[in-house]
Design a protein around this nucleic acid. Structure first.
Lengths: 330, 330
DNA sequence: TAACATTACGGCTACCGTAACAATA
DNA sequence: TATTGTTACGGTAGCCGTAATGTTA
């Protein structure tokens, strides 16, 4: 509704006309400008004439064999014309590929639980590499994000490989090992470096992280290990789940292991990897196969493909250093 | 030589395309934008397609029956496109006639000796009336100024009517009475309110203001009064002439009477009007008959036609008040 | 079926170049 | 005569509209 009338109506002049006008003003003659622009004097003469008619003002006085001279209003218009052409140039520079500097915008969608571990490294290194690019992200549920990817609202999506719909291209970023989260004082909260047989926990109350994807994933993993958990509480907030576990109200299965072994309440929790056939889940950067990636998005994919796995390896070494006797296989 | 390559080459997009792009982004669909712009969806579709091809990026994702959605780079481009259209709008607003506010530029040429009395009143009142107009002036000799007027470098010219070349349109601004300038102690420096018979001065040395126009004018006026002056010194600087007179080195004929009755050296001088057939010279605002005046210049002429004569009348009343017994006829 | 985008085709206008003309130094 | 701007004319490309087609809710 914001009715800017001049936007709905046609502009009475052309960028081309302004271009030629400035060229003539700088050259001092139509012919000179025509030579520089590889045009015929005719084209230049007509363009200037049209612009003058459009504005209803005389821009140049014509001295037959001495070229042209700017009128007073011509000088006035010259300044403004330069301003318009300048923003048009800027538009082009920002929009098209520059020789050195990558410009544009890219929006990352990121599955909620992966945000804290993937987005920081991605944003910081990419911004450092391409400071002129406007990078932003959206966190959300799998549904929201795949819809946004479909709509083009986001360029790429950080998520687990197994959640990807058909028609997705992907780049592998890293893996997440499923693990059991236990309260600090639990009977199994010892020998943290040895895998745990989860069937021993089957009878104890289970705290379910109830977001659409994680819920099904946890139940499926436990199912393959022969466990049907006794769900006591459900929450869509991972920190609520951790806090409930910290209170000794149950145990849970998690893919994301925050560095601190404390809940928001300050209570201790521990993680133990699973014994048996529980494969690590693959984290990927995904995009629609049928839709061409923007230049900036392509750069982001190439960047992420290198930087994120490297960061994950460094992160694992930190984990290993914290648990030197670990037998966890990578 | 300042080679901005993008200026000499053609821009790969159109203001029209940006216009339609923004409209579609705001409407959310090609059809909606087409309706608002009174266009067919075809035109809009093609324009968007061309813009996308020109930039090499996809701006919208098309959801068949739900319109279109901006991509990430689409949002990026949208901001820049709005910026370009904004300056284009500004260009139009400044350049064409606005509904209320007059904008543009005008340059006044002014005959050197008329500057101090005409320009201040003209500039101050016109700026007050039209604050958005860029008004400027050039002072110079008759030759320089009429050439500038011919070239269009200046829009209008303040000068004496008798100096005007053929083909000039004019608006009367006021008059200047020729007068005799005498040193303070001169035998004729009394009875200032009675006209002076210049033939009585014919034998005394004359100081000639030797600028091209004033020189011939003074000699012509004195000739019609039967006086051929004894030229002792010549100067192109009016204040030098006044100082020489103040020193008692001679007398002169002037058209401009500065308010102070002292020379730069502080010596007293007096003016007396002529007795006989010495008509006042008419000061005019002139422009080329064959060249259309710009909007702003037209406004300036109309303004000057009213304001300057009024100011001259007020100035005369001040003179009269200073010399209440004057018999000078107006 | 309704809504929307796209493609195909024809008409119109704008832009460009060649050629001829006019005006000035 | 040489330089420059303008007009006349013809060709090409771009823009627009109508009609038909394809796709999705």
């Amino acid at each position: 509704m914001s009715a800017v009338t001049s936007r709905s109506s046609e502009l009475p002049f052309t960028l081309r006309q302004l271009q030629l006008f400035v060229a003539v003003a700088e050259a001092g003659s139509l012919t000179g400008a025509a030579d520089q622009l590889l045009l015929s004097p005719t084209a230049v003469s007509l363009a200037i004439g049209h612009l003058e008619k459009a504005l209803g003002e005389t821009l140049f006085t014509r001295q037959r064999s001495r070229g042209v001279a700017l009128t007073s209003t011509g000088r006035f218009v010259l300044d403004r014309a330069r301003a318009v052409l300048h923003t048009a140039d800027e538009f082009l520079q920002d929009t098209r590929v520059g020789p050195d500097r990558l410009t544009g915008a890219v929006t990352i969608g990121c599955f909620q639980s992966l945000g804290p571990t993937v987005l920081p490294i991605l944003l910081s290194t990419f911004t450092e590499r391409h400071p002129a690019v406007e990078i932003s992200f959206v966190e959300g549920s799998q549904d929201e994000l795949s819809q946004a990817l479909e709509q083009g609202t986001i360029d790429v999506l950080v998520c687990y490989d197994f959640t990807l719909p058909a028609g997705s291209e992907r780049a592998r970023l890293g893996t997440r090992d499923p693990a059991v989260l236990l309260p600090g004082g639990h009977w199994a909260a010892c020998d943290l470096d040895t895998p745990l047989d989860v069937t021993l926990l089957a009878a104890e109350p289970y705290i379910l992280l109830a977001t659409p994807v994680t819920e099904q994933h946890a139940l499926k993993v436990l199912g393959t290990l022969g466990v049907e958990p006794e769900v006591r509480y459900r929450s869509t907030n991972i920190e609520t789940v951790r806090s409930l576990v910290g209170r000794g109200l149950g145990w849970t299965l998690i893919l994301q292991r925050p560095a601190p072994n404390r809940t928001y309440e300050g209570l201790p929790v521990v993680t133990r990897v699973l014994r048996g056939d529980a494969p690590p889940e693959v984290v990927v950067l995904a995009w629609r196969r049928n839709r061409p990636l923007s230049r900036v998005a392509r750069a982001l994919v190439e960047h992420a493909r290198v930087v994120v796995p490297e960061a994950e390896r460094r992160s694992d070494r930190v984990h290993d250093a914290a648990a030197p006797a670990s037998v966890v296989e990578h």
